[in-house]
Design a protein around this nucleic acid. Structure first.
Lengths: 211, 211
DNA sequence: GAAAGAAGTGAACCATCATTCAGACCTTCC
DNA sequence: GGAAGGTCTGAATGATGGTTCACTTCTTTC
Protein backbone atom coordinates (compact mmCIF):
# COMPACT_ATOMS: atom_id res chain seq x y z
CA UNK A 1 0.00 0.00 0.00
CA UNK A 2 2.21 2.70 -1.30
CA UNK A 3 -0.21 4.89 -3.17
CA UNK A 4 -3.30 6.80 -2.20
CA UNK A 5 -4.75 9.59 -4.29
CA UNK A 6 -3.87 12.84 -2.64
CA UNK A 7 -6.58 15.53 -2.52
CA UNK A 8 -4.69 17.51 -5.14
CA UNK A 9 -4.61 14.50 -7.41
CA UNK A 10 -8.28 13.88 -6.93
CA UNK A 11 -9.20 17.41 -7.81
CA UNK A 12 -6.89 17.27 -10.80
CA UNK A 13 -8.73 14.21 -12.07
CA UNK A 14 -12.02 15.85 -11.35
CA UNK A 15 -11.02 18.92 -13.26
CA UNK A 16 -9.94 16.74 -16.17
CA UNK A 17 -13.33 15.11 -16.15
CA UNK A 18 -15.11 18.43 -16.08
CA UNK A 19 -12.94 19.71 -18.85
CA UNK A 20 -13.76 16.67 -20.91
CA UNK A 21 -17.47 17.23 -20.40
CA UNK A 22 -17.12 20.87 -21.30
CA UNK A 23 -15.17 20.14 -24.46
CA UNK A 24 -17.56 17.40 -25.46
CA UNK A 25 -20.45 19.81 -25.01
CA UNK A 26 -18.75 22.29 -27.25
CA UNK A 27 -18.06 19.70 -29.92
CA UNK A 28 -21.65 18.53 -29.80
CA UNK A 29 -22.91 22.10 -30.05
CA UNK A 30 -20.65 22.67 -33.04
CA UNK A 31 -21.04 19.54 -35.09
CA UNK A 32 -23.90 17.57 -33.55
CA UNK A 33 -24.01 14.21 -31.85
CA UNK A 34 -23.50 12.22 -35.01
CA UNK A 35 -20.13 13.80 -35.76
CA UNK A 36 -18.96 13.92 -32.18
CA UNK A 37 -16.79 10.83 -32.23
CA UNK A 38 -14.72 9.81 -29.25
CA UNK A 39 -11.65 10.77 -31.23
CA UNK A 40 -12.98 14.23 -32.00
CA UNK A 41 -14.01 14.89 -28.43
CA UNK A 42 -10.74 13.63 -27.00
CA UNK A 43 -8.91 15.72 -29.51
CA UNK A 44 -10.82 18.82 -28.51
CA UNK A 45 -9.94 18.15 -24.89
CA UNK A 46 -6.32 17.57 -25.78
CA UNK A 47 -6.18 13.99 -24.53
CA UNK A 48 -5.88 10.60 -26.15
CA UNK A 49 -9.00 8.73 -27.19
CA UNK A 50 -8.25 5.98 -24.72
CA UNK A 51 -8.15 8.43 -21.85
CA UNK A 52 -11.82 9.17 -22.24
CA UNK A 53 -12.40 5.76 -20.73
CA UNK A 54 -10.61 6.84 -17.58
CA UNK A 55 -13.61 8.99 -16.85
CA UNK A 56 -16.49 7.26 -18.56
CA UNK A 57 -17.08 3.61 -19.14
CA UNK A 58 -18.56 4.24 -22.56
CA UNK A 59 -19.23 6.93 -25.08
CA UNK A 60 -22.92 6.73 -24.32
CA UNK A 61 -22.26 7.51 -20.68
CA UNK A 62 -20.34 10.62 -21.60
CA UNK A 63 -23.01 11.67 -24.06
CA UNK A 64 -25.69 11.26 -21.44
CA UNK A 65 -23.70 13.31 -18.98
CA UNK A 66 -23.23 16.07 -21.53
CA UNK A 67 -26.92 16.07 -22.24
CA UNK A 68 -27.93 16.05 -18.60
CA UNK A 69 -25.72 18.93 -17.68
CA UNK A 70 -26.89 21.13 -20.50
CA UNK A 71 -30.54 20.18 -20.37
CA UNK A 72 -30.49 20.34 -16.60
CA UNK A 73 -29.48 23.97 -16.71
CA UNK A 74 -32.44 24.77 -18.92
CA UNK A 75 -34.87 22.93 -16.72
CA UNK A 76 -33.54 24.77 -13.74
CA UNK A 77 -33.79 28.18 -15.35
CA UNK A 78 -37.26 27.47 -16.67
CA UNK A 79 -38.32 26.17 -13.30
CA UNK A 80 -37.13 29.29 -11.56
CA UNK A 81 -38.89 31.62 -13.94
CA UNK A 82 -42.11 29.66 -13.85
CA UNK A 83 -42.09 29.60 -10.07
CA UNK A 84 -41.04 33.22 -9.77
CA UNK A 85 -42.89 36.46 -9.27
CA UNK A 86 -46.19 37.36 -10.81
CA UNK A 87 -49.42 35.68 -11.70
CA UNK A 88 -49.43 32.37 -13.57
CA UNK A 89 -50.01 33.84 -17.00
CA UNK A 90 -47.21 36.36 -16.62
CA UNK A 91 -44.89 33.61 -15.46
CA UNK A 92 -45.82 31.35 -18.34
CA UNK A 93 -45.14 34.08 -20.84
CA UNK A 94 -41.85 34.94 -19.24
CA UNK A 95 -40.86 31.27 -19.06
CA UNK A 96 -41.46 30.71 -22.75
CA UNK A 97 -39.61 33.87 -23.60
CA UNK A 98 -36.60 33.07 -21.47
CA UNK A 99 -36.44 29.54 -22.76
CA UNK A 100 -36.62 30.65 -26.36
CA UNK A 101 -34.16 33.47 -25.91
CA UNK A 102 -31.62 31.17 -24.33
CA UNK A 103 -32.04 28.66 -27.13
CA UNK A 104 -31.54 31.32 -29.76
CA UNK A 105 -28.46 32.58 -27.99
CA UNK A 106 -26.86 29.17 -28.10
CA UNK A 107 -28.29 27.65 -31.20
CA UNK A 108 -25.93 24.77 -31.70
CA UNK A 109 -26.43 23.43 -28.23
CA UNK A 110 -30.15 24.07 -28.25
CA UNK A 111 -30.50 22.18 -31.48
CA UNK A 112 -28.51 19.30 -30.06
CA UNK A 113 -30.70 19.21 -26.98
CA UNK A 114 -34.00 19.60 -28.76
CA UNK A 115 -33.83 17.83 -32.03
CA UNK A 116 -30.50 16.69 -33.43
CA UNK A 117 -30.19 13.00 -34.26
CA UNK A 118 -28.52 11.22 -31.39
CA UNK A 119 -27.75 7.79 -30.09
CA UNK A 120 -30.54 5.94 -28.29
CA UNK A 121 -29.25 6.71 -24.80
CA UNK A 122 -29.44 10.41 -25.50
CA UNK A 123 -32.83 9.99 -27.11
CA UNK A 124 -34.13 8.42 -23.94
CA UNK A 125 -32.72 11.24 -21.90
CA UNK A 126 -34.32 13.74 -24.21
CA UNK A 127 -37.67 12.15 -23.61
CA UNK A 128 -37.12 12.33 -19.89
CA UNK A 129 -36.30 16.01 -20.01
CA UNK A 130 -39.23 16.78 -22.21
CA UNK A 131 -41.32 15.19 -19.50
CA UNK A 132 -39.78 17.60 -17.04
CA UNK A 133 -40.49 20.63 -19.16
CA UNK A 134 -43.98 19.38 -19.49
CA UNK A 135 -44.36 18.94 -15.76
CA UNK A 136 -43.18 22.49 -15.16
CA UNK A 137 -45.55 23.95 -17.72
CA UNK A 138 -48.39 21.81 -16.44
CA UNK A 139 -47.97 23.19 -12.95
CA UNK A 140 -48.28 26.83 -14.05
CA UNK A 141 -51.22 26.00 -16.25
CA UNK A 142 -52.94 24.33 -13.32
CA UNK A 143 -52.30 27.37 -11.19
CA UNK A 144 -53.70 29.59 -13.90
CA UNK A 145 -56.82 27.49 -14.11
CA UNK A 146 -57.18 27.41 -10.35
CA UNK A 147 -56.82 31.18 -10.25
CA UNK A 148 -59.52 31.52 -12.87
CA UNK A 149 -57.09 33.18 -15.24
CA UNK A 150 -57.21 30.29 -17.67
CA UNK A 151 -60.18 28.25 -18.85
CA UNK A 152 -60.59 24.67 -17.64
CA UNK A 153 -58.40 22.30 -19.64
CA UNK A 154 -56.24 19.23 -19.53
CA UNK A 155 -53.08 20.79 -18.16
CA UNK A 156 -50.87 17.88 -19.18
CA UNK A 157 -51.95 18.10 -22.78
CA UNK A 158 -51.58 21.84 -22.83
CA UNK A 159 -48.14 21.49 -21.33
CA UNK A 160 -47.11 18.95 -23.93
CA UNK A 161 -48.44 21.22 -26.62
CA UNK A 162 -46.44 24.10 -25.21
CA UNK A 163 -43.28 22.04 -25.12
CA UNK A 164 -43.78 20.91 -28.67
CA UNK A 165 -44.78 24.32 -29.93
CA UNK A 166 -41.77 26.05 -28.45
CA UNK A 167 -39.45 23.34 -29.71
CA UNK A 168 -40.86 23.37 -33.20
CA UNK A 169 -40.81 27.11 -33.57
CA UNK A 170 -37.22 27.15 -32.42
CA UNK A 171 -35.91 24.24 -34.43
CA UNK A 172 -36.25 25.91 -37.78
CA UNK A 173 -34.40 29.09 -36.82
CA UNK A 174 -31.89 26.93 -35.02
CA UNK A 175 -30.52 25.59 -38.24
CA UNK A 176 -30.94 22.40 -40.17
CA UNK A 177 -29.52 19.00 -39.33
CA UNK A 178 -26.64 17.51 -41.20
CA UNK A 179 -25.44 20.89 -42.30
CA UNK A 180 -22.26 21.99 -40.65
CA UNK A 181 -23.20 24.69 -38.21
CA UNK A 182 -21.34 27.94 -38.58
CA UNK A 183 -18.98 27.85 -35.65
CA UNK A 184 -19.54 31.32 -34.24
CA UNK A 185 -23.18 30.55 -33.70
CA UNK A 186 -23.79 32.57 -30.58
CA UNK A 187 -23.82 35.86 -32.39
CA UNK A 188 -27.02 37.31 -33.81
CA UNK A 189 -29.42 39.01 -31.49
CA UNK A 190 -32.61 37.02 -31.01
CA UNK A 191 -35.23 38.42 -33.36
CA UNK A 192 -37.58 40.30 -31.12
CA UNK A 193 -40.61 39.69 -33.29
CA UNK A 194 -40.18 35.93 -33.29
CA UNK A 195 -40.08 35.89 -29.52
CA UNK A 196 -43.15 38.05 -29.18
CA UNK A 197 -45.12 35.95 -31.63
CA UNK A 198 -44.04 32.74 -29.97
CA UNK A 199 -45.03 33.97 -26.53
CA UNK A 200 -48.36 35.11 -27.90
CA UNK A 201 -49.03 31.71 -29.44
CA UNK A 202 -48.05 29.98 -26.21
CA UNK A 203 -50.37 32.12 -24.13
CA UNK A 204 -53.22 31.55 -26.53
CA UNK A 205 -52.51 27.83 -26.35
CA UNK A 206 -53.11 27.93 -22.62
CA UNK A 207 -56.24 29.97 -23.19
CA UNK A 208 -55.02 33.32 -21.90
CA UNK A 209 -57.14 36.10 -23.35
CA UNK A 210 -55.57 37.80 -26.37
CA UNK A 211 -54.32 41.23 -25.47
CA UNK B 1 -29.25 -6.68 -79.38
CA UNK B 2 -31.03 -9.70 -78.14
CA UNK B 3 -32.81 -8.46 -75.08
CA UNK B 4 -35.33 -5.75 -74.40
CA UNK B 5 -37.46 -5.57 -71.32
CA UNK B 6 -40.94 -6.62 -72.21
CA UNK B 7 -43.83 -4.65 -70.68
CA UNK B 8 -44.59 -7.58 -68.44
CA UNK B 9 -41.03 -7.65 -67.23
CA UNK B 10 -41.05 -3.95 -66.56
CA UNK B 11 -44.17 -4.16 -64.49
CA UNK B 12 -42.79 -7.15 -62.64
CA UNK B 13 -39.72 -5.12 -61.70
CA UNK B 14 -41.90 -2.23 -60.75
CA UNK B 15 -44.02 -4.44 -58.56
CA UNK B 16 -40.87 -5.79 -56.93
CA UNK B 17 -39.77 -2.28 -56.18
CA UNK B 18 -43.13 -1.39 -54.72
CA UNK B 19 -43.12 -4.53 -52.67
CA UNK B 20 -39.69 -3.67 -51.36
CA UNK B 21 -40.87 -0.22 -50.34
CA UNK B 22 -43.94 -1.65 -48.68
CA UNK B 23 -41.94 -4.24 -46.75
CA UNK B 24 -39.37 -1.68 -45.73
CA UNK B 25 -42.14 0.57 -44.47
CA UNK B 26 -43.48 -2.26 -42.40
CA UNK B 27 -40.09 -3.06 -40.95
CA UNK B 28 -39.51 0.56 -40.10
CA UNK B 29 -42.92 0.83 -38.46
CA UNK B 30 -42.16 -2.28 -36.44
CA UNK B 31 -38.59 -1.79 -35.32
CA UNK B 32 -37.66 1.76 -36.21
CA UNK B 33 -35.10 3.16 -38.61
CA UNK B 34 -32.12 2.23 -36.52
CA UNK B 35 -32.91 -1.47 -36.59
CA UNK B 36 -34.05 -1.54 -40.18
CA UNK B 37 -30.87 -2.85 -41.73
CA UNK B 38 -30.63 -3.65 -45.40
CA UNK B 39 -30.45 -7.29 -44.45
CA UNK B 40 -33.62 -7.08 -42.36
CA UNK B 41 -35.55 -5.24 -45.03
CA UNK B 42 -34.41 -7.55 -47.80
CA UNK B 43 -35.31 -10.48 -45.63
CA UNK B 44 -38.79 -9.14 -45.02
CA UNK B 45 -39.25 -8.71 -48.75
CA UNK B 46 -37.93 -12.20 -49.39
CA UNK B 47 -35.00 -11.11 -51.52
CA UNK B 48 -31.26 -11.06 -51.07
CA UNK B 49 -29.54 -8.06 -49.56
CA UNK B 50 -27.70 -7.40 -52.78
CA UNK B 51 -30.94 -7.21 -54.74
CA UNK B 52 -31.97 -4.11 -52.89
CA UNK B 53 -29.37 -2.31 -54.95
CA UNK B 54 -31.19 -3.30 -58.10
CA UNK B 55 -33.85 -0.80 -57.11
CA UNK B 56 -32.03 1.77 -55.02
CA UNK B 57 -28.50 2.99 -55.26
CA UNK B 58 -28.14 3.19 -51.50
CA UNK B 59 -29.91 2.44 -48.30
CA UNK B 60 -30.49 6.12 -47.73
CA UNK B 61 -32.32 6.40 -51.03
CA UNK B 62 -34.67 3.61 -50.05
CA UNK B 63 -35.19 5.12 -46.62
CA UNK B 64 -36.06 8.48 -48.12
CA UNK B 65 -38.52 6.88 -50.49
CA UNK B 66 -40.17 5.04 -47.62
CA UNK B 67 -40.44 8.25 -45.67
CA UNK B 68 -41.78 10.26 -48.58
CA UNK B 69 -44.49 7.80 -49.42
CA UNK B 70 -45.74 7.54 -45.87
CA UNK B 71 -45.40 11.18 -44.95
CA UNK B 72 -46.82 12.20 -48.32
CA UNK B 73 -50.03 10.34 -47.57
CA UNK B 74 -50.42 12.26 -44.33
CA UNK B 75 -49.77 15.60 -45.95
CA UNK B 76 -52.34 14.77 -48.57
CA UNK B 77 -54.99 13.73 -46.09
CA UNK B 78 -54.35 16.73 -43.89
CA UNK B 79 -54.45 19.01 -46.90
CA UNK B 80 -57.78 17.66 -48.00
CA UNK B 81 -59.36 18.04 -44.61
CA UNK B 82 -58.00 21.54 -44.11
CA UNK B 83 -59.24 22.62 -47.52
CA UNK B 84 -62.59 20.86 -47.13
CA UNK B 85 -66.02 21.93 -46.04
CA UNK B 86 -66.78 24.34 -43.26
CA UNK B 87 -65.33 27.50 -41.80
CA UNK B 88 -61.61 27.75 -41.05
CA UNK B 89 -61.87 26.96 -37.36
CA UNK B 90 -63.97 23.88 -37.98
CA UNK B 91 -61.50 22.71 -40.58
CA UNK B 92 -58.54 23.30 -38.33
CA UNK B 93 -60.12 21.28 -35.57
CA UNK B 94 -61.02 18.49 -37.91
CA UNK B 95 -57.54 18.50 -39.44
CA UNK B 96 -55.84 18.12 -36.10
CA UNK B 97 -58.24 15.41 -35.08
CA UNK B 98 -57.83 13.42 -38.26
CA UNK B 99 -54.08 13.75 -38.17
CA UNK B 100 -53.91 12.60 -34.56
CA UNK B 101 -56.36 9.78 -35.05
CA UNK B 102 -54.44 8.43 -38.00
CA UNK B 103 -51.20 8.60 -36.04
CA UNK B 104 -52.71 6.75 -33.12
CA UNK B 105 -54.08 4.11 -35.43
CA UNK B 106 -50.69 3.40 -36.86
CA UNK B 107 -48.38 4.18 -34.01
CA UNK B 108 -45.24 2.52 -35.20
CA UNK B 109 -45.24 4.31 -38.50
CA UNK B 110 -46.31 7.59 -36.98
CA UNK B 111 -43.50 7.45 -34.49
CA UNK B 112 -41.03 6.70 -37.23
CA UNK B 113 -42.28 9.64 -39.25
CA UNK B 114 -42.48 12.08 -36.39
CA UNK B 115 -39.69 11.39 -34.01
CA UNK B 116 -37.72 8.17 -34.24
CA UNK B 117 -33.97 8.52 -34.61
CA UNK B 118 -33.06 8.22 -38.26
CA UNK B 119 -30.19 8.71 -40.64
CA UNK B 120 -29.46 12.25 -41.77
CA UNK B 121 -31.16 11.90 -45.13
CA UNK B 122 -34.41 10.99 -43.43
CA UNK B 123 -33.94 13.76 -40.92
CA UNK B 124 -33.71 16.26 -43.73
CA UNK B 125 -36.84 14.86 -45.29
CA UNK B 126 -38.62 15.09 -41.98
CA UNK B 127 -37.80 18.77 -41.78
CA UNK B 128 -39.14 19.29 -45.25
CA UNK B 129 -42.41 17.60 -44.44
CA UNK B 130 -42.80 19.53 -41.23
CA UNK B 131 -42.52 22.61 -43.37
CA UNK B 132 -45.39 21.32 -45.46
CA UNK B 133 -47.57 20.64 -42.46
CA UNK B 134 -46.78 24.11 -41.31
CA UNK B 135 -47.69 25.62 -44.64
CA UNK B 136 -51.04 23.84 -44.59
CA UNK B 137 -51.84 24.98 -41.08
CA UNK B 138 -50.67 28.49 -41.83
CA UNK B 139 -53.11 28.76 -44.71
CA UNK B 140 -56.15 27.87 -42.59
CA UNK B 141 -55.02 30.18 -39.85
CA UNK B 142 -54.71 33.00 -42.34
CA UNK B 143 -58.19 32.27 -43.60
CA UNK B 144 -59.49 32.28 -40.06
CA UNK B 145 -57.89 35.63 -39.39
CA UNK B 146 -59.17 37.04 -42.65
CA UNK B 147 -62.66 35.83 -41.81
CA UNK B 148 -62.42 37.51 -38.43
CA UNK B 149 -62.83 34.19 -36.66
CA UNK B 150 -59.32 34.30 -35.27
CA UNK B 151 -57.40 37.20 -33.76
CA UNK B 152 -54.57 38.79 -35.72
CA UNK B 153 -51.38 36.75 -35.36
CA UNK B 154 -48.27 35.52 -37.10
CA UNK B 155 -49.77 32.60 -38.97
CA UNK B 156 -46.43 30.94 -39.65
CA UNK B 157 -45.53 30.89 -35.99
CA UNK B 158 -48.93 29.63 -35.00
CA UNK B 159 -48.66 26.95 -37.65
CA UNK B 160 -45.26 25.87 -36.39
CA UNK B 161 -46.62 25.80 -32.88
CA UNK B 162 -49.53 23.65 -34.02
CA UNK B 163 -47.23 21.23 -35.79
CA UNK B 164 -45.01 20.94 -32.76
CA UNK B 165 -47.86 20.71 -30.33
CA UNK B 166 -49.59 17.92 -32.20
CA UNK B 167 -46.33 16.05 -32.64
CA UNK B 168 -45.32 16.35 -29.04
CA UNK B 169 -48.67 15.33 -27.66
CA UNK B 170 -48.65 12.31 -29.92
CA UNK B 171 -45.09 11.19 -29.38
CA UNK B 172 -45.57 10.13 -25.82
CA UNK B 173 -48.61 7.94 -26.44
CA UNK B 174 -46.90 6.64 -29.55
CA UNK B 175 -44.42 4.72 -27.51
CA UNK B 176 -40.87 5.29 -26.48
CA UNK B 177 -37.83 5.02 -28.68
CA UNK B 178 -35.48 2.12 -28.48
CA UNK B 179 -38.14 -0.12 -27.04
CA UNK B 180 -39.21 -2.84 -29.36
CA UNK B 181 -42.70 -1.97 -30.47
CA UNK B 182 -45.30 -4.66 -30.04
CA UNK B 183 -45.91 -5.82 -33.57
CA UNK B 184 -49.69 -5.72 -33.63
CA UNK B 185 -49.65 -2.01 -32.94
CA UNK B 186 -52.69 -0.96 -34.90
CA UNK B 187 -55.13 -2.26 -32.35
CA UNK B 188 -56.36 -0.05 -29.52
CA UNK B 189 -59.05 2.49 -30.20
CA UNK B 190 -57.75 6.05 -30.05
CA UNK B 191 -58.53 7.47 -26.64
CA UNK B 192 -61.38 9.86 -27.24
CA UNK B 193 -60.41 12.20 -24.41
CA UNK B 194 -56.88 12.69 -25.63
CA UNK B 195 -58.12 13.68 -29.04
CA UNK B 196 -60.65 16.12 -27.67
CA UNK B 197 -58.10 17.75 -25.39
CA UNK B 198 -55.56 17.99 -28.17
CA UNK B 199 -58.04 19.58 -30.54
CA UNK B 200 -59.05 22.02 -27.83
CA UNK B 201 -55.45 23.02 -27.18
CA UNK B 202 -54.83 23.43 -30.90
CA UNK B 203 -57.85 25.67 -31.36
CA UNK B 204 -56.86 27.77 -28.37
CA UNK B 205 -53.40 28.05 -29.85
CA UNK B 206 -54.85 29.63 -32.95
CA UNK B 207 -56.97 31.90 -30.78
CA UNK B 208 -60.36 30.33 -31.40
CA UNK B 209 -62.73 31.24 -28.58
CA UNK B 210 -63.05 28.54 -25.92
CA UNK B 211 -66.40 26.80 -26.15
C1' DG C 1 -31.92 -24.23 -78.45
C1' DA C 2 -28.39 -20.99 -78.13
C1' DA C 3 -26.54 -16.38 -77.63
C1' DA C 4 -26.99 -11.95 -75.26
C1' DG C 5 -28.08 -9.56 -71.55
C1' DA C 6 -30.62 -8.79 -67.28
C1' DA C 7 -31.85 -9.72 -62.60
C1' DG C 8 -30.86 -12.23 -58.29
C1' DT C 9 -27.73 -14.20 -54.89
C1' DG C 10 -24.97 -14.08 -50.72
C1' DA C 11 -20.45 -14.37 -49.13
C1' DA C 12 -16.56 -11.34 -49.11
C1' DC C 13 -15.17 -6.71 -48.67
C1' DC C 14 -14.51 -2.44 -46.54
C1' DA C 15 -15.16 1.79 -43.80
C1' DT C 16 -16.21 3.46 -39.56
C1' DC C 17 -15.75 3.92 -34.90
C1' DA C 18 -16.04 2.45 -30.09
C1' DT C 19 -13.23 -0.02 -27.14
C1' DT C 20 -9.08 -2.42 -25.35
C1' DC C 21 -4.39 -3.07 -23.86
C1' DA C 22 0.65 -3.31 -23.47
C1' DG C 23 3.84 -0.26 -22.60
C1' DA C 24 5.45 4.61 -21.16
C1' DC C 25 5.30 7.80 -17.78
C1' DC C 26 3.81 9.84 -13.07
C1' DT C 27 2.69 10.07 -7.93
C1' DT C 28 2.83 8.48 -3.58
C1' DC C 29 4.94 6.66 0.30
C1' DC C 30 8.61 4.29 2.84
C1' DG D 1 15.89 5.82 -4.51
C1' DG D 2 12.67 2.53 -5.48
C1' DA D 3 8.54 -0.26 -5.10
C1' DA D 4 3.60 -0.09 -5.82
C1' DG D 5 0.03 1.44 -8.10
C1' DG D 6 -1.81 5.03 -10.68
C1' DT D 7 -2.74 7.70 -15.26
C1' DC D 8 -2.00 8.37 -20.24
C1' DT D 9 -1.14 6.96 -24.82
C1' DG D 10 -2.32 5.51 -29.46
C1' DA D 11 -2.00 1.65 -32.35
C1' DA D 12 -4.36 -2.77 -32.64
C1' DT D 13 -8.81 -5.04 -32.13
C1' DG D 14 -13.55 -6.05 -33.05
C1' DA D 15 -18.27 -5.35 -34.12
C1' DT D 16 -21.43 -3.55 -37.08
C1' DG D 17 -23.61 -3.09 -41.36
C1' DG D 18 -23.58 -0.94 -45.95
C1' DT D 19 -21.83 -2.11 -50.45
C1' DT D 20 -19.65 -4.84 -54.07
C1' DC D 21 -18.97 -8.61 -57.24
C1' DA D 22 -18.18 -13.19 -59.33
C1' DC D 23 -21.41 -16.25 -60.25
C1' DT D 24 -25.93 -18.35 -61.02
C1' DT D 25 -30.46 -18.12 -62.86
C1' DC D 26 -34.01 -16.27 -65.63
C1' DT D 27 -35.81 -13.64 -70.14
C1' DT D 28 -35.69 -12.26 -74.55
C1' DT D 29 -34.71 -12.73 -79.24
C1' DC D 30 -33.40 -15.16 -83.38
Amino acid sequence: MAYRKTPAEISRLDAARERLIACATEVVADVGWAQASVAAVADAAGIAAGSVYQHFSSKAELAVEVFRRAAGREVEVLGEVLAGEGDPVERLGRGVEVFARRALENRGLAYALLAAPAEPAVGAERLEFRRRYRALFAEVVREGVAAGQLPPQNAEITAAALTGAVGEVLVDPLGHPGEAAPQAAASQAPPQALLADLVAAALRCAGAPTD
